[in-house]
Every structure is written in C-alpha cells, then in structure tokens.
C-alpha cells in the first residue's frame, strides 16, 4: 500500500502470526527438550535396568528390581532421613523467614526497605560453597561458636545438648544439628523473598478492615495475613525442600557419616558404579517434587516464583 518499502520477512510474519510464535519458541524448546528432558529420560531409563551382582555390569533388561532395592532397610533409611531433614529445614525456614519478610513488607520504608531486600537478595545469590565454608569455620572445635560458649561460661549447656541422642554427637560439626543449621542458613533466603513478595501484595486496607471488624492483631495474623502469605510460603518451600533433598555437599562437609539421598546418588554413580541404583534414587526426589509442584500449583504458588 502506502509506500512500497521492502520488508518481505516482516510482511510474512504479520500474515502468519503462528510463524512468529514458532520462531520464538523453537530454539528454547529444542534446547530444553534435547539437553534437559533428553538427559532426564536417559536417567529414568537407566533406573529400569539393573546391575548384575556377579559381573558388576549393567544388564540392559527392563526390570523393577532396582526399585525394589530402594526398599531395603539401609536404603529406605536414607530416603526417610532425607525427607525428614528436608521437612525440618522447610518448616524452620518458614518460621525464621516470616518475621523478616513480614517486617520488610509491612514496616520497612525507604532505605530500610532496600536494606531488607538486599539483605535477603545478597545471601541468596552469593556463593553456596562460601556459605557452607563459613559454617565449617563457625562449627569447628576451635571455632567461634565453641569460643562463644566458653567465654560466656555456658560450655555445659552445649555439652548437655550434644549428649542428646540423634540430634547430638561428638561435636556440632559432626552432628545432625550441624547439618540442619547449615541447610537452614543456606536455603533461608529462598524462603524470605517469595513470602515478602506475597505479603507486599496484601493491601494495608485489608488489615485495617480486619481490625475494624474487631480482630485482635493475633487474629488478623492468623486469619488474614497467614492465608494470604501461604502461596509465598509454598513457593519458598519448593526451593528449600527440593534443594535440601538433592544436596550432597552439606552433609558431606558438616554432619554424621549417615548418608542422604544426594550422597547416595553421588556414590552409587561414582565409586560404586551402580548407575541403575543411582538413577532409582534420583527418581525419588523427582516424584516427591512432582507431587509437591502439583499441590503447589493448585494453591496458586507459581505466581510467586
């Protein structure tokens, strides 16, 4: 029409909007489909093979034998221990994160708002290994925590705590408490930011309405704020739960000799060379997270991601 400027590709794209969409979506879809899903299915396939007990070689015959092995007492222990740890870390992270997120969303203004936001952002993105390393320093026998207890003449409290079975141990750095603390520390920022985001969306007038209708602050918290923060908590828990479940570095560096799923996967595929069992172990977090994500989706948590 108007002026006959040449733009054949543009013209084609306008006439065929589906083509534009296809051009946009194909490269990322190919990458994720081939590199990621392809690899994931390769792994899944392996879990249906088994290892020949005599030769130690993988026999490429479809079987559920490897999954049955997961139910062996020692392996079941690993699964349950990991899920228990992931749950404990998730719940504690929500409890510790909530006041921070709530304060940041409700009360912090201007510069303090930035302080709180960056206060959660920087640890979230700063080096995972450095964070783990810092706790190795803190929990070491000659480290700052023991020094603190001694300086305050409270060493007996620590000893009494360490004497408690299961959560105690020889020292904090080889106890479940130590592992738990490091997990909590490392994943906490993943809980703060989504909760804060969901709380930011609660209009102050809603809280005023609740107070106006006669709710005490505690009731407002329980019946108004918590339900509205729930999608954020669920979004955060996706990360804390998933990350704890798959981690093999933290329990290796701080903790007891009892293994978690991540360590088992790492060892079975590495030193033990039992890739089918490693794959079967890896399927557990996938299934758990699949269920978790489905539940989270129905609770509307994806808007907070």
């Amino acid at each position: 029409m108007a002026e006959a400027r040449r733009a054949p590709l543009s013209d084609t794209l306008w006439r065929r909007p589906r083509l534009l969409l296809a051009l946009l979506i194909t490269p990322p879809l190919l990458w994720l489909g081939i590199v990621y899903l392809g690899a994931l299915f390769a792994l899944l396939a392996q879990s249906f093979f088994s290892i020949d007990e005599f030769s130690g070689l993988i026999s490429y015959e479809l079987t559920l034998k490897t999954y049955a092995e997961l139910l062996r007492a020692s392996n079941l222990d690993i699964l349950l221990r990991t899920i228990a740890m992931a749950s404990a870390v998730t719940v504690s992270a929500a409890v510790v994160a909530f006041p921070i997120a709530y304060y940041a969303a409700r009360y912090a203004r201007g510069r303090w708002k930035a302080v709180f936001y960056l206060g959660a952002m920087l640890p979230l993105w700063s080096s995972y290994l450095v964070k783990v390393y810092s706790w190795k320093l803190i929990l070491a026998k000659e480290g700052v925590l023991n020094w603190l207890f001694e300086t305050l003449h409270l060493a007996w409290v620590l000893e009494a705590y360490l004497a408690i079975p299961v959560i105690g141990g020889n020292s904090l750095s080889v106890s479940w408490t130590g592992t738990f603390l490091v997990f909590l520390y490392v994943w906490l920022p993943f809980m703060i930011l989504p909760i804060q985001a969901s709380l930011e969306r609660v209009p102050p007038s809603m809280l005023e309405a609740s107070g106006d209708l006669g709710a005490r602050p505690g009731q407002t918290l329980r019946y108004v704020i918590l339900p509205l923060a729930l999608p954020g908590i669920i979004a955060g828990s996706i990360f804390t739960f998933s990350l704890t479940m798959g981690d093999y570095i933290v329990p290796q560096i701080v903790g007891t000799s009892a293994r978690m799923i991540g360590q088992a996967v790492y060892q079975f595929q590495g030193t033990a060379g039992n890739i089918p069992l490693a794959a079967a172990f890896a399927v557990v977090p996938i299934v758990v997270m699949g269920v978790y994500l489905t539940l989270a989706k129905s609770a509307g948590a994806f808007d907070e991601l």
Partner: peptide, 11 residues
C-alpha cells in the same frame, strides 16, 4: 484492498 496489508503499510 488492505486486507493483507500489515499496519506499517496502511495510511
């Protein structure tokens, strides 16, 4: 006939 003309070609 402007049926097949994209926006940047319409007066």
């Amino acid at each position: 006939d402007a049926t097949a003309a994209p926006p940047y070609r319409r007066p």
